[in-house]
Design a protein around this nucleic acid. Structure first.
Lengths: 260, 260
DNA sequence: GCCTAGGTCCCGTGG
DNA sequence: CCACGGGGCCTAGGC
């Protein structure tokens, strides 16, 4: 009796051998990597046809599937996680159908020649942490509001309105209400329009002044123009700066600033 | 003298052997696939840290790089095409640095254990065609304007305004001007706002009536509400229908409808 | 399920 | 080069 191997790698297998390895790999929740010549037909939200050529195909244990050409960042065809695989040998060669219930869409890969099949048991529990995100910018302003401007006091974060979410609402040193919209990349006209949408909800009565503040590392000319037109303000701030600020106080829970 | 192999596949190689194969593969513009235990550090527009775990790594001849965990559609770390690779053995194992000039960002992969290295010569010249896109919806309306409504005559396509592009402008059966905005997926409030933006540019003088028509396979409740508020109209149309219509007349150039 | 907004979005198409 | 909008975007977070 064989003990189950951690990996199976087949070089230029015949279709029958490839099929067996692929089916076994999928059944055992392995990551399956195939290199070979294929066509791909997709049909669902849109539809597509990929003519014969050599590609790299990946099936993951979570039901995601990728077909990569030997160029480009993005897969030429794919299915997101939660898909179901069906492998069989037909007149077009080794046919793998990847079906997604939710979107009622399917991707059919027909392999005619196979260079490699690798069935891999990838164990991956490593933590992944991303820094310098928009969320970190928000946290940095809540933690050290002076980086927005001296005397600023945040009152709410992620306030649901209209529909949408205002990143931060607070009071400035003169007790004027301020709506803060944060962007981690250069802000454009759309970002200003987004801020306006929130201002339209908050700035209802003319008696009370409300400031609109756009926080971003940079702003486009068109964005700046509209901003000035609407009487809003721009505060330059980079996600990297914010990330640095948070590093100084990593460990202090964010909730501490809202609890007595 | 060896003839260059079409593919090199190494199972559980040592770091030195892996390094040699990877360097050769990159130099010869091959697609390099690595399975192994690694950490990844990214620094650029944002930054990230990925702790030790087993992943699938892909380097393509166009300078794109992907690190895939055994789950998810999207890579956990990556660089788009145009990156430069540098491979060396250091104290952290086999270290591959992927550098991108344009964004001044880098991804460093440190491999400690390697399950597989595959150097593949993927030849892929197959055509890829995507159907049922927004562009096809536009073409279908230009080709057979009656699918929008009987008597509709398109005048311009992709008219640049403001900034932005109005998908189609035309006259209806009663010679009323109509601004048409197309969405290939369910239209939401944002889509209606986009139409409004274009209407604000076209519908300047109150003397002339202008219709705003949103074409989409479906519309959200919020979108519909705003649409009614603004007095615009919704025309249901699916990208699939449009794709079918175009199939009937594939071959007729789009320009034919604008030339004498 | 719907809806909104973010993304190291990527990518193409203008100017 | 910058700016804007599309994408089979995908994905997370609310409701």
């Amino acid at each position: 009796m064989e003990s189950p191997k951690r990996q199976i790698i087949l070089q230029t297998p015949n279709l029958e051998g490839a099929k067996k390895a692929i089916k076994t790999g999928i059944a055992r929740h392995r990551t399956v990597v195939i290199a070979g010549s294929c066509t791909v037909d997709y049909d669902g939200r849109a539809s597509s046809k990929l003519e014969e050529g050599e590609r790299l195909i990946i099936f993951k244990p979570d039901g995601s599937a990728l077909v990569h050409r030997p160029k480009d960042y993005s897969p030429v065809n794919w299915q997101p996680s939660g898909s179901i695989f069906h492998t069989r040998i037909g007149k077009d060669g080794l046919v793998i159908r990847v079906f997604r219930r939710k979107e009622r869409e399917s991707m059919v890969i027909s392999l005619t020649m196979i260079q490699m099949v690798a069935v891999l048991d990838l164990v991956d529990n490593g933590d992944f942490t991303l820094y310098a995100t928009e969320k970190e910018m928000q946290e940095a302003i809540l933690f050290k509001p002076d980086i927005l401007e001296p005397g600023f006091r945040p009152m709410t974060k992620e306030m649901a309105v209209d529909p949408g979410f205002i990143d931060i609402i607070g009071y400035d040193a003169d007790d004027i209400l301020a709506v803060v919209e944060i962007k981690r990349v250069k802000a454009n006209k759309k970002a200003v329009e987004q801020l306006k949408k929130y201002m339209d909800v908050i700035d209802l009565d003319d008696s009370r002044r409300v400031r609109g503040i756009l926080v971003a590392p940079d702003i486009t000319d068109n964005g700046s123009e509209l901003l000035n037109q609407l009487g809003y303000e721009y505060k330059p701030l980079t996600p990297q700066e914010c990330s640095e600020i948070l590093k100084q106080k990593r460990g202090t829970p964010l909730t501490a600033f809202f609890e007595p």
